[in-house]
Design a protein around this nucleic acid. Structure first.
Length: 156
DNA sequence: CGGCTTTGACCTGCGC
DNA sequence: GCGCAGGTCAAAGCCG
């Protein structure tokens, strides 16, 4: 299954990004739907994010995972949404060489952040994967990347 | 010349 | 029903 290829690349960022000098820290969320909502709506979850980055402890990240299981409807809803993975890392550049080739198709100012959000599609024909990239509103040194979908091909 | 980025406009969903 | 915000499209310009 080629899914594994994509999963592997996002779940072990240190492998793919080891040659990127700026990644002092990174943080990854599996199925970050609820956190994403909180982040956009109020920024409350973002404090947790900062805590994790500040502390870099496994306990904090499990706190994020545990907070997503309280609503019946949203669990079902989440299962219907295509795979989404978000992670935040310390980087000066927004365009990371993650093994795939991306084409920018949009840029948008978002309400809760002074920084624009950039939209990218995988430029491999037929591949449905998209990603959003935005800078942390409080820590511009951090970049928040959200991958949506699964690559149906191997790395470019 | 081809591919990519930029940028404004348009569409859609959601909350009030 | 209206307004707002997010997401996508498409034309034009730029760069290799």
């Amino acid at each position: 299954m080629s899914n594994n290829n994509f999963n592997r690349s996002v779940q072990t960022p240190e492998n793919d990004f080891s040659d990127q000098p700026n990644f002092d820290e990174y943080l990854m969320f599996d199925d970050w739907l609820e956190e994403d909502h909180n982040y956009v709506a109020s920024g409350s979850a973002q404090n947790s994010v900062n805590q994790v980055n500040d502390d870099d402890s496994g306990g904090s990240s499990s706190q994020l995972g545990g907070s997503t299981t309280n609503e019946n409807g949203s669990v079902l809803e989440r299962q219907q949404v295509k795979e989404r993975v978000a992670f935040k890392m310390k980087s000066e550049v927004e365009i990371l060489d993650d093994g795939f080739k991306w084409r920018k198709y949009g840029k948008k100012m978002v309400k809760n952040s002074p920084n624009p959000r950039n939209y990218y599609k995988c430029s491999c024909e037929g591949c449905p994967v998209k990603k959003r990239v935005e800078r942390d509103k409080e820590d511009p040194a951090f970049v928040i990347t959200t991958y949506e979908g699964t690559h149906n091909h191997r790395t470019v």
